[in-house]
């Protein structure tokens, strides 16, 4: 699950690879993997397991 949507990935990949695939600048977002926040430094070493729940969030306008 990626941001609440069922998503199929072409194969095993890391968080860093996923962000690159999505065209997302890792410095601008926060990533939660199975309800645990993943530090930016660990994106490249965190491999996405099947059935993982991933949230990618960023800042948007708000009050």
């Amino acid at each position: 699950m990626l941001n609440g949507e069922p998503t199929d990935l072409p194969g095993p990949m890391t968080i860093a690879a996923l962000l690159e695939r999505l065209g997302i600048d890792g410095r601008m977002v926060a990533v939660e993997y199975n309800l645990t926040i993943i530090k930016r430094a660990r994106y490249a070493e965190t491999t996405i397991e099947p059935d993982a729940e991933i949230e990618i969030v960023a800042f948007v306008g708000g009050g």
Binding site: N3, D25, M28, V57, F59, G61
Partner: peptide, 30 residues
């Protein structure tokens, strides 16, 4: 202040808001 939301995966430019805020003298309060 800024809000925290899921990135719209269909749209490019996640986090683009911050490019419009001069963080050299404006502090960000999520």
């Amino acid at each position: 202040t800024v809000a925290v939301r899921r990135v719209d995966l269909a749209a490019k430019g996640a986090g683009a808001l911050l490019e419009w805020i001069d963080t050299s003298h404006i502090f960000i309060l999520p």
